[in-house]
Every structure is written in structure tokens, then in C-alpha cells.
């Protein structure tokens, strides 16, 4: 069955849909967590610390966190590899362009591939910046996420990279969520409007929620 799914264009899209939905679920949780920064360093740092102790005593220290990380890495890799292979195939299937061509599909639809590449690069930067601290702008201190976040968003490039990526994620979700529903066969004529609305609301809420943090730092609400 795994072979059939991976070898088919329809199956590979299903892999993209499921991995995309896993990442989307994570983003919702991640955004809600981020918003705790507006309640001060105490609450935010406590939340960050709690993430390492989830599931104790059943789970050992950081086990849950690593479990989530593994699932996310698998989802990102599955999503990206499927996207790469399908895109290669799509480009090969339409080798010559029309002389008379016009852009038609919505901006979100047309930017899925470039948006995906931007997001992949962003994830690498984001982890190196705020998880490992390798490219962090200030003095990165493990266990002090509040200060680390403020440091990042006190630089112009930190803000620029983050804002571009969050707009890209919004556009990606707008087309991606609705598409995932079609790929998994749950879309229908009667449900179409509801699915599009949910996609737009999710895209808007996540973009706004994530952007609230750099905007908060820039306006000194968070400092």
C-alpha cells in the first residue's frame, strides 16, 4: 500500500495533505504559545520550561518535546520531498509555455512553490536563531526565551525575515488547507464555502497571531 501511495501522483498529494495538516496543527499550538509573551517574562519562560516537562512522570524530561520534534521533521521532509518530486513532474508535463498567457489562479495558488521554498529556508534560520542560538543576534541564553525573542526582533533583519515568512505561511495555508481537503476527498460542493472560509480564517489568524510578537517588540509592548 505504501508503494502504491508513494508511486502515484494522487497518493503523493495525499502524503502532502496529511503532512501539511500535521504542521498546521503544530502552528496553531505554536502561535497560542507565542502569545504568552504578552503576559511577561515570567509566564512566557515558565511556559517554555513546561514544554520540557510535559507528560512527566510517565514521560522522562524532554521526551514529549523530542517526540513532537521527530514527528515534525518527518512531516517537513515528507512534505518537501513530495512537493519537489511532484513539481519536477508538473514542469516536465508542460514544457512549452503559451505565447499568449495570462496569470489566472489566485496569488496564493501561484506562489505555493516559491512560498514553500521561503518557508523551508525560514525554518532553518528560525531553529538556528531561537532553538540552538547559532545565528542569534544577541547573547543567546538557553532557558531564557523571552530575552532571546526580544533580541531577535530588535534587529531590522530579524523582523524582515520573520514578517516575510509569516506572510508566506498565511498564503500557503490559504491554498493549502482547502487543497488538502480536496486531496483527501472530503471537499464537496455544499462544503466548499465552509472549507474556503476556514482556510482564510486560519491563514489570517495564524499570520496575525505570529506577527503580533515582532510588532509587540517593535512597539515596545514587549521589552
Amino acid at each position: 500500500m505504501a508503494r502504491t501511495v508513494w508511486d502515484s501522483t494522487v497518493g503523493k498529494k495525499a502524503v502532502m495533505a496529511v503532512s501539511g495538516l500535521i504542521m498546521l496543527l503544530y502552528l496553531v499550538v505554536h502561535m497560542i504559545g507565542n502569545l504568552k509573551i504578552f503576559f511577561g517574562p515570567g509566564e512566557f519562560n515558565h511556559y517554555a520550561h513546561w514544554l520540557r516537562t510535559v507528560g512527566e512522570p510517565f514521560m522522562h524530561h524532554e521526551w514529549t518535546l523530542w517526540l513532537v520534534r521527530v514527528v515534525l521533521v518527518v512531516a517537513v521532509v515528507a512534505h518537501a520531498v513530495s512537493a519537489y518530486q511532484l513539481s519536477r513532474r508538473d514542469i516536465k508535463a508542460r514544457p512549452s509555455k503559451y505565447v499568449h498567457s495570462k496569470p489566472r489562479a489566485s496569488y496564493a495558488t501561484r506562489t505555493m512553490r516559491w512560498g514553500g521554498i521561503i518557508l523551508a529556508l525560514f525554518i532553518v534560520w528560525h531553529v538556528l536563531d531561537l532553538t540552538t542560538g547559532h545565528v542569534h543576534s544577541g547573547g543567546f541564553e538557553s532557558g531564557k526565551p523571552y530575552q532571546n525573542v526580544v533580541d531577535t526582533f530588535s534587529t531590522w533583519y530579524g523582523n524582515a525575515v520573520y514578517i516575510v515568512a509569516m506572510l508566506a505561511v498565511g498564503l500557503h495555508i490559504r491554498h493549502g488547507f482547502w487543497s488538502a481537503a480536496q486531496t483527501l476527498g472530503v471537499g464537496s460542493r455544499t462544503r466548499d464555502r465552509a472549507l474556503k472560509t476556514v482556510a482564510n480564517v486560519l491563514a489570517l489568524l495564524l499570520t496575525a497571531g505570529f506577527l503580533a510578537v515582532p510588532v509587540g517588540v517593535m512597539t515596545q509592548v514587549v521589552s
Binding site: T4, D7, S8, T9, V10, K12, K13, L86, R89, D90, I91, K92, A93, R94, R104, A105, T109, R110, M112, H175, W178, S179, Q182, T183
Partner: peptide, 21 residues
């Protein structure tokens, strides 16, 4: 559905990105 989709892929058609064109 399995055979027709397999043949569709075999012929070198692209995949669906739900552009709706």
C-alpha cells in the same frame, strides 16, 4: 480508479495543484 490513475501517470501528465483552471 486505480488503473486509470496509474495509466494517467504513465502517460506523463502532471499532478493536480488545485489551481482550478
Amino acid at each position: 480508479v486505480l488503473d486509470m490513475v496509474a495509466q494517467m501517470d504513465e502517460e506523463g501528465f502532471g499532478g493536480c495543484t488545485l489551481a482550478g483552471e
